[in-house]
Design a protein around this nucleic acid. Structure first.
Lengths: 209, 209
DNA sequence: GTACTTATGTAATAAACGATACAATAATTT
DNA sequence: AAATTATTGTATCGTTTATTACATAAGTAC
């Protein structure tokens, strides 16, 4: 068994509390004293466990990703590309206003460091966001290969579109938009989703669903 | 005339340089030493002129608004609501990647302080964004009153939708998206724009101006 | 029980932060 | 020319920042 004095706190719990602080105040705005206070530990314990402030933040990011992965897996497993898009945007709308736990509305990947002073945190966050976009793109490539999307559709553009709206939704949530506001935005954005190709010589209008 | 030793620098020039720093590093990430270095003045001059770091930032915001107002006036003066939406989103796409001067891609109203430590900067920025949204909403209310928008259209929801996409575009730009990427996103988002109501038995469509 | 190993709490570290005191300077006003 | 007034450069203020020494505590291994 592991020797030495056992750790007196639960790593996951402290990460959740640190996440809330980073989320609310941003990476730079979150001071070590605020973090240790929220986590209920002293700084030496924090440094022994996470190495540095940046190390703590990366651990928080990893935990955040774990949670988002559950959501993304659910989204990506939808039967059609259109349903993937719908699940993603409506899910993002719900997620953005869900202050479950004590997290502020919005998205950690945006709030914690869209811009930053001395570190490469913004790049790191952009990379995480790009990963989500890549997952969507791949899903849409598959969909097109299976004729679930028209040939004229551009999987990368569709994925980017969804990410753009999703990020916008997070910003709106952080600014105080309501759940219904964001659902409406998501629903409207989905109206732009491509339908089957229409070839020349065929009827160009279609009845609304 | 004004007595005393004259100021040795141009206020507007220094504001532009400070804007770049805030834009790139965020409100908190921008240190006074970095600001004074970029502005080419010493801290006493800065404090004499702007009062404090926050005072400087608000002056920068005001200058930023002046510039955006020119853009918004142009957008709002478009003849139809649909054209307003198109000008706004495509304009946002151009603006977001335009690093004219030395500004980073994106939008100051997002990058400089989506989250922040000790000040109410995020609220202040949200208020500025809300003003833009309100201007759009008002324009769409007028449009609906003039039957330029269907009666079923919700001006507030339309304005919020555009702001959401616009904010998302700014985030994408800050993450390195290309101008063409963003134009494509804007174009796709515009596909969701409402067209004339179709009522049963009555033709409500009208010829475009 | 003694040695070893890891974690904890207190207190302190150097560096950076935003903000000024002060004397010198450069203009207008009388 | 003397008095007044605002700006400038240098150098520094007290705080706060992230990060550690160090002695003590709490476990396992022998």
């Amino acid at each position: 068994m592991r020797t030495g004095r056992p750790r007196g706190f639960c790593v996951e719990d402290t990460l959740d509390r640190a996440m809330t602080v980073f989320w609310r105040l941003g990476y730079e705005g979150a001071s070590m004293s605020e973090l240790t206070a929220a986590m209920g530990i002293n700084s030496p314990s924090l440094y022994a466990c996470f190495g540095s402030k940046e190390g703590l933040f990366r651990a928080v990011l990893e935990r955040y990703d774990d949670r988002r992965k559950i959501f993304m897996d659910h989204v990506l497993s939808a039967p059609t590309a259109a349903k993937v898009a719908e699940n993603y945007l409506l899910g993002a709308a719900e997620f953005a206003v869900d202050t479950g736990g004590q997290n502020p509305p919005g998205c950690l990947l945006l709030q914690s460091g869209l811009s930053c002073g001395d570190t490469d945190i913004p790049d790191e966050l952009a990379r995480h966001r790009a990963e989500k976009e890549a997952a969507l793109r791949k899903r849409f490539e598959d969909a097109r290969a299976q004729s679930d999307l028209p040939e004229s559709a551009d999987p990368a553009a569709l994925a980017r579109y969804l990410m753009t709206v999703s990020n916008g939704i997070c910003v709106q949530a952080a600014s105080g938009a309501s759940a219904q506001d964001l659902r409406d935005v998501a629903t409207m954005a989905l109206k732009a989703w491509p339908t089957a190709d229409r070839k020349v010589g065929k009827a160009k209008t279609e009845a609304p669903a």
